[in-house]
């Protein structure tokens, strides 16, 4: 079967991601910004798919687009939009931001120009069929300790949220 991961799709999805990202910071209405962020995240999931990582793509859709962003929207929708539309936006640090962006972009270009040979000269052809199984054996075998620490951190965050939200425990 011919690979679907052609450069054409990469450019399409990368373009969607860029447009979405720009929309996130330029829209005045926070709900529009959040929706643009969702578009960006979905395009990112498609790029994961192109990298033969279907599991990561699926998790990206469930967690970010389906879970976290819905909670985001939830909060934003309860805020008075009219007032925030008239407010000045918090972009007084744009000079610092621009410098940081230029430096980061320069770094990327430098890496691309200097270290051409670290990039593979052809597309990867990993068999997609057992991606999920490989992720599972890695997570629960080789990287067990790191995985458990990450879940402990999340548990602490959950308990912290409950403690802060509840008046009387």
């Amino acid at each position: 079967m011919a690979p679907v991961a052609t450069p054409f799709f990469f450019y399409v999805f990368a373009g969607i991601m860029l447009i979405g990202g720009i929309m996130v910071i330029t829209r005045k209405n926070p709900v529009h910004s959040a929706l643009a962020l969702i578009v960006t995240l979905l395009a990112q999931a498609s790029i994961y798919l192109m990298l033969y990582a279907p599991f990561v793509a699926g998790v990206q859709i469930i967690l970010y687009a389906g879970g976290i962003m819905v909670l985001f929207l939830f909060v934003i929708m309860l805020v008075s939009i009219d007032r925030s539309m008239k407010d000045r936006q918090f972009n007084s640090q744009w000079i610092v931001g621009a410098i940081a962006a230029i430096v980061l972009g320069g770094l990327f270009i430098a890496v691309y120009m200097k270290g051409m040979n670290i990039f593979p000269d052809h597309a990867l052809s990993i068999v997609e069929n057992d991606n999920t199984q490989n992720v599972a054996t890695m997570l629960y075998g080789q990287y067990m300790f790191a995985f458990e620490i990450a879940s402990l951190l999340l548990l602490v965050a959950i308990i912290g949220a409950v403690v802060m939200a509840k008046k009387r425990i």
């Binding site: 929706l35 969702i38 279907p54 599991f55 793509a57 699926g58 998790v59 859709i61 469930i62 687009a65 389906g66 879970g67 962003m69 819905v70 929207l73 939830f74 929708m77 997609e128 069929n129 057992d130 991606n131 999920t132």
Partner: peptide, 21 residues
């Protein structure tokens, strides 16, 4: 798909988005 059931749950969870919107 290799991620069949994950895909189903993920995409059907996107319908919340439409309802909220």
């Amino acid at each position: 798909m290799n991620i069949g059931i994950l895909f189903m749950l993920g995409v059907s969870s996107l319908s919340v988005l439409g309802i909220v919107m």
